[in-house]
Design a protein around this nucleic acid. Structure first.
Lengths: 324, 324
DNA sequence: CAAACGAGTTTACAAATGTCAATTTTTAAA
DNA sequence: TTTAAAAATTGACATTTGTAAACTCGTTTG
């Protein structure tokens, strides 16, 4: 019956069928039973087809990012801190029970904001961390012509983020961009070794690339004992306390910043292989994605230092920031 | 309570809330009841919020266009007629009962194909008709940088298409493109008047624009007595029969073509204000969207004449075309 | 050849969803 | 201030959906 035969065309016929089924269900609004009758299969099969279509990204659900920056809270924040745009996520949870859920929702909002902010041809720098991971997880497949995505921070094994390069790689793949990863650890064991890494040609080239970005997307850590950098074993509680004593308020790209958003060079800064704060500031569009009221000090510091033009935050943090 | 007050911010707060609710529902996968509990509203309200979000295009469902051209039928057609890509829509209806439903599904497939084919910066020509209307109705809001959309055919009042400019306008607005409408009727009452119209500076400029397009999207009519051109009162049954006798097989942009896809100048051709066939052929990407087996002759003629590089058709027509 | 496998089926059930009509609350207008 | 219109609520209901378990039927594959 199938002249061309083979699993090749069979697979493709299958996905083409998935697409048409998905359109009938989501577009035409037919019920699963109606579709099952037409396909002459059982309804259970239709359920499975639809799930497959969603899982494979054949159907995707987009939320218009522009709406998210229009709330009163978002606009008040933007005007108070003189930011281009603020996007606020909200899980409407009266007692913010589930941090993971808040993070996921922020990730979704941030991914829509990202698509709202990015422009064709942009050279984009991506940091990594829980928050950026949440964003990249939620990013749908939307082609951005001529985009380039670069990893801002060297790689690291951490329990919270399976593979740090993943953020960069996934975002690049979703928007069809060229992907430049940073082939170095985020932290070297000695300052000298870190410098050797930085001087290594392939790495030096990449670090240079980070000096000419159009857009950066990153998050920020605070100085609590459980901050991501400590959890990943990149710094010690002792160092954190010392940094705090010296006025550090936040951590951006593994670097400490003070209340005015200026970098403070403290151990282990000299062992870090990552974009410099100045590089971030050089980017025209600086997207800061943050979740949790415990980042209040940190985010204020970053804004003071002109490190952000666009903000994506959860409603609780937003309210705290506005009344701060 | 609401310091800034006014309906402005209220509306915006509302849509921002819609967005977050939509993300919780479609993204996080919460049930309506769970969301209702969080928002402290009734579930019915959540149902309404979600519907509103969909209606307003705050949430949109995309289907990946690439899948639709991978079916065996699509690839066999592409290779048989030496086309770049063929997209096949299917409603899986054993006895094609509902033409309107077939048309809607084709419109959805065509809109995904359109997004698949279009590139940033493209100058796009859009015809009008039932089929193109179905496509533009289904087109989601996706920005295409630097695109320009031009109306290929003058305007016309017709029962089947509420307002002919609508196709062009809607497509332009959905992709964020500059929109150039053609401020003339599709049919003038005399050839002389038609020429006067064509020479009118604003119209002449627009017609000139149509000579340099990167992409065109149009459909094709047959020569049946109910063909759209006749239904719209732009030609008479007598003229149609005469055209048929002279070898006409299809109607593209209100112009007759013969079996080899060459234009035939027959009344009322000289009274038409629209893109020339040569203009269509000059576009690098020529997207032909057709629905219904009764267009078999017409579509063959168009393909023969090299008028299409991309095809969007329904499965029934596809099968007929393959075995023709 | 038989075991294992994948895809699909049936049946059954619990949960989620859409919809209606009647009612209350809120909002805007006269 | 009263009133009309709009928006949200409640409760009831039918439909739709998701999921599970056990079963069938070809196709591989060892």
């Amino acid at each position: 019956m199938n002249k061309t035969g083979g699993t090749f065309s069979k697979d493709h016929d299958r996905t083409a069928r998935l697409s048409n089924v998905a359109l009938l269900y989501y577009g035409e609004g037919l019920t699963q039973s109606e579709i099952a009758k037409r396909l002459q299969v059982s309804r259970v099969t239709v359920v499975n087809l639809l799930r497959e279509a969603r899982d494979q990204g054949i159907v995707e659900i987009h939320v218009n990012g522009e709406q998210l920056k229009e709330s009163t809270l978002a606009r008040e924040l933007a005007s108070k801190f003189d930011l281009e745009d603020v996007y606020v996520s909200d899980v409407f949870d009266t007692q913010a029970v589930d941090r993971a859920a808040v993070l996921r929702q922020l990730g979704r909002v941030a991914s829509m904001a990202f698509l709202d902010i990015v422009e064709p041809g942009d050279r984009i720098g991506i940091a990594w961390g829980e928050t950026i991971m949440a964003m990249s997880d939620a990013l749908p497949r939307v082609r951005v012509e001529g985009a380039e995505v670069s990893q801002l921070i060297g790689s690291m094994i951490s329990k919270r983020v399976p593979a740090s390069e993943n953020c960069t790689i996934r975002i690049a793949s979703q928007i069809g961009a060229v992907c430049y990863t940073l082939h170095a650890p985020a932290l070297a064991s000695t300052p000298e070794l870190a410098q050797l890494f930085r001087d290594e040609p392939t790495i030096a080239t990449q670090l240079e690339r980070l000096q000419n970005l159009d857009m950066v997307a990153y998050s920020i850590g605070n100085l609590s004992d459980e901050t991501h950098m400590a959890a990943a074993g990149m710094t010690t509680v002792k160092e954190l306390h010392a940094a705090q004593a010296k006025g550090a308020r936040g951590i951006i790209c593994c670097r400490f910043i003070d209340a005015d958003g200026r970098g403070i060079s403290l151990p282990p800064t000299d062992r870090i292989i990552a974009s410099e704060l100045a590089d971030l500031r050089a980017a025209k569009k600086r997207m800061l994605v943050v979740c949790g009221e415990d980042r209040l000090d940190a985010i204020q510091a970053a804004i003071m230092g002109g490190l952000a033009t666009h903000l994506c935050i959860d409603a609780a943090l937003g309210k705290a920031l506005l009344s701060a």
